[in-house]
Amino acid sequence: MEASAWYMMYMPISGIEIFWPGLVLIGFAVGVIGGFFGMGGAWLVTPGLNILGFPMAFAIGTDIAHIAGKSMIATIRHAKFGNVDVPLGLAMLIFTMLGIEIGARIVIYLEAIGLVGPVVRWVYVGFLACIFLMVLTDILKKRRREREKIGEEDKLKGGIDWASTLHKIRIPPMMHFEMAGIYCSLWLPGLVGFVTGILAGFLGIGGGMLRMPALIYLVGCPTHVAVGTDLFEVMVSGLYGAFTYTLKGRIELIAVVVMLCGAAVGAQIGTVATKYSRGMGIRFWFMVCIVVCMISIIFKQYGLTLIAGILILAVVALVCAIIMGIMFKGAAVELREKKAAGK
């Protein structure tokens, strides 16, 4: 409560002062970007909070709690639980939670030996580079397909069918997951949950970006079951992550609340905007966002915190502005058309 200026907010647990408009902007941006591109965006929060001044462990804990809240909003709004393969979800969930616990313990251990900042920052740089490559490959593949005029149905042809190959590994217990329509070793989805769990607990992300493709391509889930099961996983394991980080005393609840409010509004804008744009062109900005986020983390690592902060907030604001532009233009047209049709 003893904030020195109106734009600073006192964080009661960690005892630091935070530039709160930055906090709102990051929450809002995660909502907009997540809603628009259909994938998390939590990778922005941990580095963003760390650059704003949060100690690394607090940044991770706060991020994971914010994800739990955000996925709760999405779940309530879309009530997509119909597509959850419950035994698959449960089997994965327990391994995911185990992974999160281990990830969180590694963070606390690194914090105790004074290395958490640099280690997590460099892992983030590597992780963001992977996302960048994933998005880039996706764009290039789509471009090539458009050029060669190959239909969507052909996209899975060629290459190894990993799911069937992995289903041949018969380490007991073997399980039959009815809704997903697969028969495989329990260890397969378990391992997917475990690995994504460690990453989620260590980086403070939801892990959906990795879990979804893994469920589809490695476990062999149909896409709609993968979406439902992933949402269920993110929500429940996120709550567990929030709980375990709280027990370790590394959560700033007030920051979670501020970011959640921003994210809720942002997610609506992002989702509405997808109605008016296919998003292929705007993917360029998504990639810019990732690269700038990487550069900011490196700046922060070398002590250039102010530049890192300005950079990350500026690019995030720019991408939000672009997506909001798409939404306002589109919404204006739609409402006008509705009015005209009403007359």
Binding site: A65, A68, G69, K70, S71, M72, I73, A74, T75, I76, R77, L239, A242, F243, T244, T246, L247, I251, L253, V256, V257, L260, C261, A264, V265, A267, Q268
Partner: peptide, 22 residues
Amino acid sequence: LFGIWTVVVLTALGSGIGFLMD
């Protein structure tokens, strides 16, 4: 207790905001 509270606050806030936004 703080951990339980965090989970409850997150659940209440998340579902509350989701409902309101709807």
